[in-house]
């Protein structure tokens, strides 16, 4: 998937000279033709991920569209603050291509794997996150990111994934959409990234046991399509979520939260809070104050 992704960036860069590619210290020969044909658009900047991310924000402030590729764990964990502050809060057109999302580098150990990337980036303002399941979705994601300014994180799969979507597929899709399920035993898989392939295998096995199912695959993980998901899950008796991510902070924990409606949740919202003022001003502005919470609690009992 990485190979196709970098090829796509190369093709786009040929058409738009504001497109810049930056690597840290990637493998020999990476994008050799890109470097030879467009040397001004190609950067290999050394093992300095934190610097590279902020530098890319500076380039983007002057009209560049910057693609950065390195191992996802270094780009997200080591450079967390640079990604958050300089790219996302500043809303710069920088696209992070994270190699080895999930356990691609499991043989190399925990320093190189990243099973919590959705959780890490979930509250990054302005950020769009993609987790393609195959090369077709990867190309869709890169094209979308190129033509819609803003910050992006794209999680790469392990490579050599067969295409399970086609060129006409929208970002998120449902397999067997037209297939009518029995209402009393309907089952929906919700998945993202490479676990779509596992869902498909399970679906086939279930089908041989006369159990029919649909699969909802998210390419775009953030912003989370919660309205779509909410209306979907109401239509199925059973929901199975599969993701290559730790339990908390991934798509599963969001969907579980959406499904559990008894909870009144007072929180600080979803967007960047950049107001000045005192701490209490911020809390009150977001409805976290005694009177607001008291009124909401009373309302619960009045309804009953």
């Amino acid at each position: 998937m990485r190979k196709q992704a970098l090829l796509k960036v190369y093709e786009l860069a040929k058409k738009n000279h504001d497109i810049i590619f930056i690597g840290s210290d990637l493998g020999i020969g990476t994008l050799e033709n890109f470097k030879a044909e467009m040397p001004e658009q190609f950067f290999m900047e050394g093992v300095s991920e934190a610097h590279i991310l902020t530098m890319s924000a500076g380039m983007a402030s002057q009209g560049r569209i910057v693609f950065i590729n390195s191992i996802a764990s270094f780009l997200l964990r080591r450079s967390f603050e640079q990604f958050y502050l300089d790219i996302c809060c500043e809303n710069k057109h920088v696209i992070i291509l994270g190699s080895g999302g999930g356990g691609v580098y499991a043989p190399l150990g925990h320093t190189h794997t990243i099973y919590d990337d959705f959780a890490i980036t979930h509250n990054f303002p302005n950020l769009t996150t993609f987790a393609p399941c195959d090369p077709v979705q990867m190309e869709l994601a890169i094209e979308y990111a190129t033509f819609n300014p803003g910050p992006y994180y794209i999680r790469f799969g392990k490579g050599n994934e067969p295409n399970i979507t086609n060129d006409n597929t929208s970002q998120n899709f449902i397999t067997n959409h037209g297939l009518k399920l029995q209402s009393d035993s309907s089952l929906l898989f919700i998945t993202t990234g490479i676990t779509a392939h596992i869902a498909l295998e399970v679906q086939k096995l279930l089908e041989s046991n006369s159990i029919l199912s649909h699969i909802y695959q998210l390419n775009k993980v953030k912003p989370f399509p919660e309205k779509e998901i909410e209306s979907l899950i109401d239509n199925y008796q059973h929901i199975v979520i599969i993701e290559e991510h730790l339990e908390f902070g991934g798509i599963g924990s969001i969907i579980k939260l959406l499904s559990y409606r008894k909870v009144l949740h007072f929180h600080l919202g979803r967007n960047l809070i950049s107001h000045y003022g005192r701490q209490n001003d911020i809390l009150e502005n977001q409805g976290i104050d005694v009177q607001s919470i008291f009124k909401s609690c009373i309302h619960l009992f009045q309804k009953e």
Binding site: H51, M55, A57, R64
Partner: peptide, 15 residues
């Protein structure tokens, strides 16, 4: 947060 400005300026100056 300290240590960001010089990298940002680097990207601007290169451009």
């Amino acid at each position: 947060s300290l240590g960001h400005g010089l990298s940002f300026a680097t990207g601007m100056a290169i451009t």
